[in-house]
């Protein structure tokens, strides 16, 4: 049997992302990778919490943050996680078109989130002169939230690349693990944001 036949079976299995050894390996490796990412963000959160009050007499969290925009961003990202679940649901039903549609909606929500974040950063820099080197708190804030933003950007580029690459040929056992793993990444980004929303913004306003 050639690769083509193996990767495009007549009846797609229920879990196309784990039907091949390569798929199983990717699936497991990505969970391990997310374990490492968790330590990465835990270290960044630890740094942020340690430097939370170290504003050097400059802008404080209470002074800076506006919860309205952040609430909107949270809703966008949470919804995008839901739409990526729909996409994976359709992958398991072997409905490629619907999967692409829901992925496209996910990407749009992610882009909107990213746009808001860029606006937020620019706003802080221009209105408050709150820059990367203003204080230890500023460095910690931009690094933690910026790392998350970088992950969003990378995730969006990844999903878009996969969508364009597979637009014509549809789903098979070779690309199913790729889509699945990208959606896992997207969920992880979402979970990190929940912690950022709580630790940075809510605790910054109230704590």
């Amino acid at each position: 049997m050639s690769h083509e036949d193996v990767l495009n079976p007549k009846h797609m299995p229920h879990d196309p992302e784990k039907a091949t050894l390569e798929g199983k390996n990717k699936f497991l490796a990505f969970w391990f990778f997310l374990g490492g990412e968790t330590v990465l963000f835990a270290s960044l959160f630890g740094t942020y919490i340690a430097l939370n009050g170290s504003t050097a007499g400059e802008n404080t969290p209470e002074h800076l943050f506006g919860l309205e925009l952040v609430f909107l961003m949270t809703m966008m990202l949470l919804t995008s996680s839901l739409t990526s679940v729909y996409a994976m649901y359709h992958m398991k039903n072997h409905d490629f078109r619907k999967m692409q549609t829901w992925l496209a909606i996910t990407v749009l929500l992610g882009l909107a989130f990213l746009g808001c974040e860029i606006y937020e950063f620019l706003h802080y820099v221009h209105e408050y002169e709150f820059t990367f080197g203003s204080s230890a708190f500023a460095s910690a804030f931009y690094t933690l939230v910026g790392f998350h933003g970088g992950h969003v950007l990378f995730g969006l580029s990844w999903i878009v690349a996969l969508m364009i690459r597979n637009q014509k040929r549809g789903l098979n056992l070779y690309n199913a693990p790729k889509f699945y793993v990208a959606s896992l990444y997207w969920h992880f980004i979402d979970v990190v944001w929940v912690f950022i929303f709580t630790v940075v913004y809510l605790m910054g306003k109230v704590g």
Partner: peptide, 9 residues
């Protein structure tokens, strides 16, 4: 950045 710069906290 100012992570280890004591003057900036």
């Amino acid at each position: 950045a100012a992570f280890f710069d004591v003057a900036k906290g």
